[in-house]
Design a protein around this nucleic acid. Structure first.
Lengths: 174, 174
DNA sequence: CTATTGCAGATAAAAATTATCCATGATAAG
DNA sequence: CTTATCATGGATAATTTTTATCTGCAATAG
């Protein structure tokens, strides 16, 4: 059982984006630099987060990414599923029916007990991930991590976040 | 996140071996046939189970595999770890320290909170697998599966299990 | 207009998984 | 003692997945 490296990258990026103020953004290139990752590949994962509705993206200069909703409403499960896909880790190949003895299909309507047990464990895994809010991760980092790393992280965000153009209210909304 | 196909094969084989009587064995070839699997590859997985102490193997004609201990004391976790390895699915690459800002190593003595959260979820997964005993899987199959599949499975075991040579007690033990 | 940025798709490189083969040693049976 | 069966271990190949790069395109701030 293995999780791709993209998961780690995605969570770290989301945590960092939780630090940007208001509707400012941070570019994918900046985050790639922050974590020593390949920019072009990181974009793929960020895009998965965007597609999943976890991040919002802004094109153009001063563009980048920001959280699509408050960190309190983003869980590690959201991120893991966005990056790794929603399929369970255990995929039942129904090898029980692949033997030489042919029984008609009706004999196999009951789901495989092994599959059921494996999926039950996976539900426990996902439930635990669903408990972990991004805001908890960030708060824990702020409160308990080494002050130097916190300071460095905040400085990086401060330096790379980019305020967005103020929305000009249209005539009709004035 | 993905589990290899070997896990499914290994669990099915272990469940089947739970049905062989006494110290009889069943050959790897027979199990490969039962599930329509590649014999030479299945042997690899069976060997992993043997190495892990879940199965016992017997060489020679009439040889094969049997459970190394009662099915009550074999869990799905035992099997999954034997086949997939014991490392956690989430491996922290410490990308937090891979950025351009160099802090000395002492700033990173505290473990990464993201890693901690991911590992916690994984403990929940493993705990659930540790709850699932092979004997439960087998009992559930016997009691609730379609009677035809149960009959077919029992017949297969009956046909392929091989009694072992009786142990001749040595003079000194008599 | 121009430079920057995200996006989609094609493609390539690297790694892991799945599968096969062969030589070897063990052993039951003739 | 010979033969046939079976697990083991190592080498190797085929296949799939993961990781990474590149290019052209659309969006947009200045």
């Amino acid at each position: 059982m293995k999780l791709g490296e993209g998961v780690e990258a995605a969570i770290h990026c989301a945590a960092m984006l939780a630090g940007v103020e208001g509707n400012s953004t941070m570019s994918g290139a900046a985050m790639a630099e922050a974590f020593g990752l390949s920019p072009s590949y990181l974009l793929k994962h960020l895009n998965q987060l965007t597609t999943a509705g976890i991040l919002e993206s802004v094109s153009g200069p001063a563009g980048g990414y920001r959280l699509a909703r408050p960190a309190e409403r983003i869980t590690l499960l959201d991120i893991v599923l966005a990056v790794e896909g929603r399929e369970p880790a255990f995929r039942c190949g129904e090898i029980r029916q692949r033997g030489p003895v042919k029984l008609d299909a009706k004999a196999y309507v009951k789901p495989c007990g092994i599959n059921a047990a494996m999926l039950k464990a996976e539900r426990a895994y996902r439930a635990a991930l669903a408990e972990a809010k991004l805001s908890d991760i960030v708060a824990d980092f702020m409160n308990h991590a080494d002050p130097r790393t916190v300071a460095a992280s905040c400085a990086f965000v401060e330096r790379h976040q980019r305020p967005q153009k103020v929305q000009q209210p249209s005539k009709r909304e004035r």
